[in-house]
Design a protein around this nucleic acid. Structure first.
Lengths: 228, 228
DNA sequence: CGTCATATTGATGGGCATCAATATATGTGG
DNA sequence: CCACATATATTGATGCCCATCAATATGACG
């Protein structure tokens, strides 16, 4: 039980190079939370008391626009963290998060202890800052993408960024999330995604069956990703 | 000369509450840079050696897509800073920046000294982290905006966020940058911006002459900003 | 096997970019 | 001060991308 928390925390990039005693304080301030698909972890606007590391399953971070439509900011998998920024700022959560898989487990790291250690240990400050900068760069990339890239280009980039392995006919990869979720993350509709895949399929660029996709001509996708 | 640097640095939110001696070290590590419109300050991909605070004029931060199109990430005015994230990460600049006014002055703050002080002074760490979180939240807002909001809604939000003053007929405001630049920042074309303003003008929502705009019915704009 | 979420496919329309032409500033040198 | 050059702004015509609505298909799972 507590071992699971300990293992997750020790594996986080944020906490590399910290003393044993400090790590144990963090472990003591944390707890394992298990949620089912659709269950909320944090609510936009609520005062924040912790940040989270995903241990199993998947989590999506999203905002709800005034008119009720939701925009997914990130899909997170095991080993990834969220809401550090809110904790450091000691404010309210700027977005909501919920599990998208049954049996999702996250480690909840208490804000108070964390902030205390942040003030004591210089290394933590540096590593946390690096982590925040990583988020910044990812977001900058998304802003650029959303404003200049077409739906096809965004999808091409997404596919090319997935882990793939060599196969007879080309690069073989698996969608780690459902197509609906992929569409959400790329800010397109599932219909558009489906049509785009079919166009590439008909053009002999990919071979697609269910969540398994083989890139027959990755160079063509690279061209699409670069274009428009 | 050095007084200008000193005044700018002392006024930055990043450096509030620091000791005199520390501030002077920062001043010593900084220099005033004067550039004309269109001159570059930092280049995407170059190793970073400093971050910047705008003292006079205006600066735009942008990225260039593979196909040559540029996307403006931010327009910055006096008192605002950029590239802190790159410095803290000690990497390369993730975007380019250039002046958009003649006679623009920025204070260049050397990375080495800054990082040294960052490690020594806990307050600086906290304030810098807060600053980074601010950038994060702004970017999150832009991602949301770009993916769910229409061009009209984005423009409405932009206008409503500008400083305005009461006038006889409504709220009077001035565009701080050219309409072309506004369009760039909102990721729309100047034509679309022009047409949208005209539609509101014809509808009696605004009165627009050159860069001066009077919001006759701000509530209508609020509704547009909330919608779609 | 029935139920429900996910996926696919078609038809339609609107928003916004693109191309093109003109107007209006803004600035420069004679 | 005017003529010219250049950037910015406006307006129109056209078309495409993509969302929306709707229907069906194909899973997943009790």
């Amino acid at each position: 039980m507590s071992d699971a928390v300990r293992a997750t925390i020790r594996a986080l990039p944020h906490f590399q190079g910290l003393d044993e005693a400090v790590l144990e304080r963090l472990v003591a301030a944390s707890r394992l939370v298990r949620v089912e698909r659709g269950e909320a972890l944090v609510h936009e606007g609520r005062p924040c008391a912790a940040f989270y590391a995903v241990r199993r399953g998947a989590v999506r971070v999203f905002r709800v626009a005034p008119d009720g439509r939701t925009q997914v900011l990130h899909h997170l998998g095991p080993g990834q963290t969220f809401a550090e920024a809110a904790v450091l700022r000691m404010g309210r959560y700027p977005a909501s998060a919920e599990a998208t898989r049954d049996g999702t487990e996250v480690v909840e790291i208490g804000a108070a202890t964390f902030l205390q250690i942040f003030d004591e240990d210089r290394r933590l400050a540096r590593v946390m800052v690096a982590s925040l900068c990583g988020w910044l760069q990812r977001l900058v990339g998304r802003v650029e993408e959303l404003s200049v890239a077409s739906a096809g280009a965004r999808l091409a980039r997404y596919l090319l960024d997935l882990p793939a392995r060599e196969a007879d006919e080309g690069l073989e990869l698996r969608l780690p999330i459902s197509k609906r979720e992929v569409a959400e993350q790329l800010a397109i509709t599932p219909e558009t995604l489906s049509r785009q895949l079919r166009r590439w399929h008909d053009g002999g660029v990919i071979r697609s069956e269910r969540s398994r996709i083989v890139l027959l001509r990755p160079d063509t996708l690279l061209a699409v990703a670069a274009e428009s």
